[in-house]
Design a protein around this nucleic acid. Structure first.
Length: 579
RNA sequence: UGGGGCGUCGCCAAGUGGUAAGGCACCAGACUUUGGAUCUGGCAUUCGUAGGUUCGAUUCCUACCGCCCCAGCCA
């Protein structure tokens, strides 16, 4: 007998996604065709190490690494670490782990914007020399007022026309640590009347006496995103710099620096960020869930973070497939979470070994099966994968079946067990329910007395008679106890949320996003199952051994996703019809 | 009376002058020792609206409507 292997590591069964074209691919193909940059394609994934990556980042990661790979190019991992107050080394490690887990390799191209602080400072000096940047003494509040509004032009700072010498000296004293935080900034001299607010003399450098997780106290002035990002791209000779739509307004500035500094002309291209139904993807909201204890942490299996998806049981292959299928465009969109789940099922169906587990146990006694005896039956490990082989499972007089696989009064189209009805125990025997035992006080069904047909061993009827229902089961004596956590979406479906959405997203939280079941009975082959191993619990869904709380003597499974459930649909339709 | 974007099936998304790909969801049927998987069929006479150009427009032009982003010394 061979135990089902926890799950095949990489079956290489990742779908051959016939990558549909998209506007970014077209631009790149075009550039390659005309030999721009010698036909070279070089992208980068540039997270700020101030939090955990989520599925929205996965879209960007797959896009950047994928597009580069498809063109024989490279993709760098670059940490956009220009704000020491929000960033930590711990996040750097977590991000690297997540990108690796997703299956991407940046080889030795691990960069940090902070590596370029020296060069960036030189460029700032260069701009001052050209008369294109100046030191401003206005306070943050004044700068805001001088900036004007969306519909009114701003006005120029009284410090805007300082001489080059004065600016040089002032910037030097900023850098030397002689000035207090916030007392001065370095600004680009562009156009205070520009329609695009980003061009109204944007701040290039601010004074911040803060320790940086990599450069320590080497600097007390730090460049702003706009003065660091594009130039970092340029330094790394990035050909196509992909970012989300909210940076469209920054592109003129991105290009302004390239022109004024006469540096490598990377091209910024913006695409729509991912939104997923029934979840939140904003860092602020996710943090709120964690801080308020509404989830157990950043890797709570209900979270959309990469670490949570991993813990939940998602495969990297399914996430990559999802990223391919949603495409890339510029229209704001919300992808149905059902697509993500579809990708997951497609992958897991091919590779997850099947196993029997009873989540809400109901005792069944086979009255005509000899007491104290047992036998082994053969069960297929994965009907989708002949290579997976089969295993032996014990059968005996006392079994556990699922509570909801029995009804005292069977509704229409209910194929499962009911008084007098015969069903097939998967890979076992046909059994017939003879008697229902109830708790005398509560009336609750506590045990079923059944008989089995010894001629139907393995689940086949020699006389050819049919049974409509096949149910899963576990032999009581050999069953292993387990805790099972049933997860559902973080938020209720949009049509149930309606108007209250505007007020607070927490009003939309799904109250049933977690249900913990203890006393579940799983088949003996699962004993000692390794963390993160994935299985299909037959007829129920895909489950993954929790990577935090599970141990050999206390198995904990997370429900990754349910199987499609046609019966549930029929039931729902029946309920609605009768209502 | 600001600037920048976007509007193709319930949700994504190709197509961009020659008469609407694909996926998800959904519906129906076949098959089935998972009500799973698989298979078959159905699902936009129409591309935000209204005009115009053209033999012909989702693709070009004009106007309008709707939605998103921008006023951090965050990214």
């Amino acid at each position: 007998m061979s135990k089902p292997k926890p799950d095949s590591p990489d079956t290489g069964n990742e779908p051959e996604s016939q990558t549909t074209s998209n506007f970014i691919r077209s631009i790149i193909d075009q550039d390659v065709a005309v030999g721009k940059h010698g036909g070279r394609v070089h992208t980068r994934f540039p997270p700020e190490p101030n939090g955990y990556l989520h599925i929205g980042h996965a879209k960007s990661i797959c896009l950047n690494f994928g597009l580069a790979a498809d063109h024989g190019g490279l993709c760098n991992l670059r940490f956009d670490d220009t704000n020491p107050i929000k960033e930590e080394a711990e996040y750097v490690e977590a991000i690297k782990e997540d990108v690796r887990w997703l299956g991407f390799d940046w080889e030795d191209r691990e960069y940090y914007a902070s590596d370029y602080f020296g060069q960036l400072h030189e460029w700032a000096v260069e701009l001052i020399r050209k008369g294109k940047a100046y030191v401003d003494d206005l306070t943050a509040e004044e700068i805001r007022q001088y900036r004007g509004t969306l519909t009114e032009a701003g006005k120029e700072s009284p410090y805007r026309d300082r001489t080059v010498e004065e600016n040089l000296a002032l910037f030097e004293s900023m850098r030397a640590g002689e000035l207090a935080d916030g007392s001065k900034v370095l600004r680009a001299k562009i156009d205070m009347a520009a329609g695009n607010l980003n061009m109204r003399d944007p701040v290039l450098y601010r004074i911040l006496h803060a320790s940086h997780h990599r450069t320590g106290d080497d600097w007390c002035i730090y460049p702003m995103y706009d003065f660091a990002h594009g130039q970092s791209d340029s330094i790394e000779k990035i050909t196509h710099s992909l970012c989300t739509l909210e940076f469209e307004d920054h592109r003129p500035l991105y290009d302004w620096f390239i022109r004024e500094l006469d540096i490598f002309p990377s091209r910024q291209i913006e695409f729509a960020r991912l939104n997923l139904s029934q979840t939140v993807l904003s860092k602020r909201k996710l943090k709120q869930l964690v801080d308020e204890g509404l989830v157990s942490g950043w890797d709570d299996p209900r979270m959309p973070t990469i670490s949570a998806l991993r813990r939940r049981g998602y495969t990297p292959e399914s996430i990559r497939d999802f990223a391919d299928r949603i495409g890339v465009a510029k229209a704001d969109s919300t992808v149905d979470v059902a697509l993500l789940e579809h990708c997951l099922r497609v992958d897991l169906n091919k590779r997850a070994p099947r196993v029997m587990a009873v989540l809400e146990p109901l005792k069944v006694v086979i009255e005509n099966y000899p007491e104290g005896e047992s036998e082994l039956l053969e069960a297929v490990n994965n009907p989708e994968d002949p290579e997976a082989g089969s295993r032996q499972i014990p059968f005996s007089r006392e079994l556990w079946i699922e509570k909801n696989d029995f009804r005292e009064e069977a509704p229409k189209k209910y194929f499962r067990l009911a008084p007098g009805r015969e069903v097939r125990l998967r890979y076992g025997f046909f059994i017939t329910c003879q008697e229902v035992v109830k708790d005398e006080t509560t009336g609750e069904v506590v045990e079923l007395r059944c008989t089995y047909d010894p001629e139907t061993r393995g689940g086949y009827a020699p006389d050819g008679r049919k049974v409509r229902g096949t149910i899963h089961w576990v032999s009581a004596a050999e069953a292993v106890n387990a805790e099972v956590r049933l997860y559902d979406h973080l938020l209720k479906p949009a049509d149930e949320v309606k108007a209250d959405q505007a007020k607070d997203f927490k009003a939309s939280l799904n109250p049933d996003s977690l249900k913990v079941l203890t006393g579940c009975k799983v088949e003996p082959s699962l004993e000692g199952a390794a963390r993160e191993s994935r299985f299909q619990f037959e007829r129920q869904g895909y489950f993954c051994v929790d990577n935090r709380d599970s141990s050999p003597d206390h198995l904990v499974f997370n429900r990754t996703v349910t199987l499609r459930d046609t019966w549930a649909k029929i039931e729902k339709a029946q309920r609605q019809a009768s209502a």
